[in-house]
Design a protein around this nucleic acid. Structure first.
Lengths: 221, 221
DNA sequence: GTGACTTTGTTCCTGCGTTCACAAGCGGTT
DNA sequence: AACCGCTTGTGAACGCAGGAACAAAGTCAC
């Protein structure tokens, strides 16, 4: 129903990325068409919800038939902005940072790490994922030169805020933070937090709740 | 208002884990008391929302004064089940898996990796985070012996489903999956999906939307 | 002992996301 | 050419999360 851009819910955007991954797999497998039911099953969501998500991009299926795999894939890719490659910088090349830099999935999804930065001298010069690690002192210059607008923080928690400050000062406007701290950024800068231990703790809570659904009443130990 | 256990929203549980991290930091800093406003600021949420989250554990603050840092920390820890150490197994010791196994934050939050598993012969025997890497053939036995109920999957996407099947067959009932595939698990098994590229794509979309907020209506700068 | 201030805990309300159910439309078949 | 089955797209209701405002309660000052 919508023209194209305005107002796509964030939850929908996250699912569109999942659909895109599933569709890419189907396309590689040679599939030409797919129904909402099958696609929803492969993505782990409700078929009606999937159709509603897709309705935000306008009509893109054929009634009575289903969706064209390649067409839908390209359409979602265009909406998500995967068509053009986006320059990103990554700060912190510890275990997690190295994993991110080496992850092939980013390149095929329109992300290119144009700069890897670390403060440890022994890491400078290492080549990870085809890119050399540079000292953080070059961060501002590289961000300005490459016009990178996305920054990923995979540093220890203690320095994450200062890295965030430097990134925003250099012009980065979207930050993905893996450090277990809540970052403060200027208005207009979007920060997304991924806390691995939080995910685990939610899992542990559900585990606890399943073991002891109703303890006794209210009395504590 | 609630006794203690039944019905805490999942979104609240995720935030409780964040509060717990902030409170631990305050406690280490020697702080004795804290108000909802300050705690909310440090956690990046609304003060009223924080109080509502905390109300699920019953009254735990003092009106006119605030919250006792240590008391609140212990209370949240008890609700989240951090008090007792939970045995977890981790499958896939690539870059990401190694980062997880080596992450000190898990141990201090009540998670203990009692088994690290990989299928690559060159990784067997390596010691990561103080634990040796074992062949996946020992997975079933170790899960049974340690009674591990939580499994973490950090393998390539192609084998994630088969690893999931083996974990559930061995008795694991909570799974945290980092592989970019949608897993199918039996009823009663809780699967949480963390897709790093999805997070990045949501960020990229918001970036795109900001650059071109209205396609054809409002003129751009 | 009384008053006033501070902060919590709760309640109401608004908005969003999700799900269910139906109408519209297209292809295949006779 | 007309019918029938299948699938999409949309409209409406339900439930939930988030935010703001108010009442309860405890402490500090005098």
């Amino acid at each position: 129903m919508n023209p194209s851009r305005p107002r796509i819910p964030e939850a929908t955007v996250a699912r569109l990325a999942v659909y895109l991954r599933v569709l890419t797999g189907l396309a590689d497998g040679g599939r030409a068409g797919v129904s909402s039911g099958e696609l929803a099953g492969a993505a782990g969501v409700n078929p009606a919800g999937l159709r509603k998500d897709l309705s935000h991009l306008g009509p893109c299926g054929v009634r009575g038939v289903g969706y064209d795999v390649l067409g839908l894939r390209d359409r979602i890719a265009r909406v998500l902005g995967v068509e053009r490659s986006r320059p990103c910088v990554l700060v912190g090349l510890g275990n997690l940072g190295s994993a991110l830099a080496d992850y092939a999935g980013f390149g095929s999804r329109g992300f290119e790490f144009v700069g890897l930065f670390d403060s440890a001298p022994e890491r400078i010069g290492q080549v990870i994922g085809g890119r050399p690690v540079r000292p953080v002192t070059e961060l501002d210059r590289v961000v300005a030169e490459t016009r990178a607008t996305i920054g990923v923080i995979a540093t220890p928690a203690e320095v994450a805020q200062s890295v965030c400050d430097r990134l925003t000062a250099a012009g980065v406007r979207s930050i993905l933070n893996f450090a277990p701290v809540t970052l403060t950024a200027p208005a207009g800068v979007d920060v997304r937090q991924v806390d691995l231990s939080v995910e685990l703790q939610v899992l542990a809570f559900l585990d606890t709740q399943r073991d002891a659904p109703v303890p006794a009443l209210g009395g504590m130990a």
